[in-house]
């Protein structure tokens, strides 16, 4: 099983279970994340958002061809979105990692027969609420769950918001990384073919 991803430059095919880090400034990384997690027919998408309200997330995905019943959103902003036809779970803080994992498990449980694309925008906000160590361990366990469930994980991060060490530590969790921004998109690592 694999996931076709259009949005990281050339069309790429990711092996099921792979997680990719999209690094760069957040408007661009969000766009690339929406491209990458838009579910193909027969798939679902679950997006965890700390920087964009759920209405916008859903609109962006619908614009890219998703249908409402394919989507689920965990909103960790201060918005209180009510989106018709899409389950939206609210959490008060991006630092509530147990809450995120619990709501994720529940959304996943609603239909465990379909391939799932998972989006997490953005690790940078969550890092303002949790220590680097905690965040690393959380992401490691999260990507392990994505692997065991044959899902596709897409996480964004803005390196300019953190020191080099934090970025280098976080990127060690991921199978692959795409850098967005200055030059052309470059996809590095493993778990995909182009």
């Amino acid at each position: 099983m694999s996931y076709r991803v259009d949005g990281f430059g050339e069309l790429a095919t990711f092996d099921a279970g792979t997680s990719v880090l999209v690094s760069g400034p957040s408007p661009e990384t969000n766009e690339r994340l929406f491209d990458a997690v838009t579910p193909a027919s027969g798939e679902r998408a679950i997006v965890i958002t700390t920087n964009t309200d759920a209405e916008t997330v859903v609109e962006e995905l619908l614009d890219r061809g998703a249908t409402r019943e394919q989507l689920g959103v965990i909103e960790c902003t201060n918005h209180d979105s009510d989106v018709e036809g899409v389950p939206v779970k609210q959490l008060s803080s991006p630092g509530d990692l147990t809450g995120i994992s619990l709501e994720f498990a529940k959304l996943l449980d609603e239909d465990d027969t379909k391939p799932v694309r998972v989006g997490f925008a953005t690790v940078s906000t969550a890092l303002m609420y949790a220590e680097l160590r905690t965040m690393f361990r959380f992401l490691h366990v999260f990507t392990a769950r994505i692997r065991s469930g044959d899902m596709l994980g897409v996480f964004t991060m803005n390196p300019s918001m953190h020191d080099d060490k934090a970025h280098n530590t976080i990127r060690a969790v991921f199978d692959s990384e795409v850098s967005v921004g200055r030059e052309e998109l470059t996809l590095r690592g493993s778990g995909f073919s182009q």
């Binding site: 147990t98 498990a105 366990v141």
Partner: peptide, 13 residues
């Protein structure tokens, strides 16, 4: 790894 294990591990972390 299953979902309940995932939640328990995040809780521990």
């Amino acid at each position: 790894m299953e979902s309940d294990e995932f939640v328990a591990m995040v809780r521990d972390i």
